[in-house]
């Protein structure tokens, strides 16, 4: 009688705890879905390094690839830097604009980074981190894909690859304007 009771109670207590632990270990604590997906992208207007226009409204009607980066972000920002310029060159005549937001950086280091990779798309520093916070950025690099209607459609956390960028841009370009 007593042993049957114990045989029932112990699994009843242990199994849920084990399941909870298993679930916790299977999920990636850094993979937090952005609540911004599907929502209108927050407007911003920054002073770019080169004087090129840097506000979202200006590029309305184009697909926007918005990249958050920093010169101190090693190695991920350095890994994806060539991709950003390649994608910009390949897509700038197809209705895509690449925008780079430089967070928590010094002007000197940021300009050196841009020169090192020959980035020719608009880039701007983000004083006070307001734009980064407005996009719920929690670490660089992060890249947001914004459709022609100005909605956030995809968020890439970590280094961007050519494959991911092309797949997302092709998808958004294929949609009716």
């Amino acid at each position: 009688m007593k042993s049957r009771w114990v045989r029932l109670v112990i699994p009843a207590a242990v199994v849920p705890v084990l399941l909870l632990l298993a679930y916790g270990f299977w999920t990636n604590p850094r993979e937090i879905p952005s609540p911004l997906l599907g929502k209108p992208a927050a407007a911003f207007a920054l002073a770019s390094f080169t004087g090129a226009p840097f506000n979202l409204e200006h590029y309305r009607g184009r697909v926007v690839m918005l990249n958050f980066w920093a010169s101190w972000c090693r190695p991920a920002c350095y890994e994806e830097a060539p991709t950003l310029e390649r994608v910009w060159q390949a897509y700038k005549d197809k209705g895509v604009v690449v925008l780079g937001v430089d967070v928590q950086d010094s002007d000197e280091a940021a300009r050196k980074f841009l020169a090192q990779f020959g980035h020719s798309f608009p880039n701007a520093p983000d004083p006070g981190g307001r734009v980064a916070i407005d996009y719920g950025v929690y670490g660089v690099p992060e890249t947001f894909f914004i459709d022609r209607q100005g909605r956030v459609r995809f968020k890439q956390v970590g280094a961007l690859t050519d494959d991911i960028a092309r797949k997302q841009l092709d998808k958004l370009l294929a949609e009716k304007p």
Binding site: Q104, G128, G129, R130, A132, I133, Y138
Partner: peptide, 13 residues
């Protein structure tokens, strides 16, 4: 961290 510092700035603002 600088990020937290910036967030406090946004809260203040």
């Amino acid at each position: 961290s600088e990020t937290a510092n910036q967030m406090r700035g946004v809260i203040r603002e």
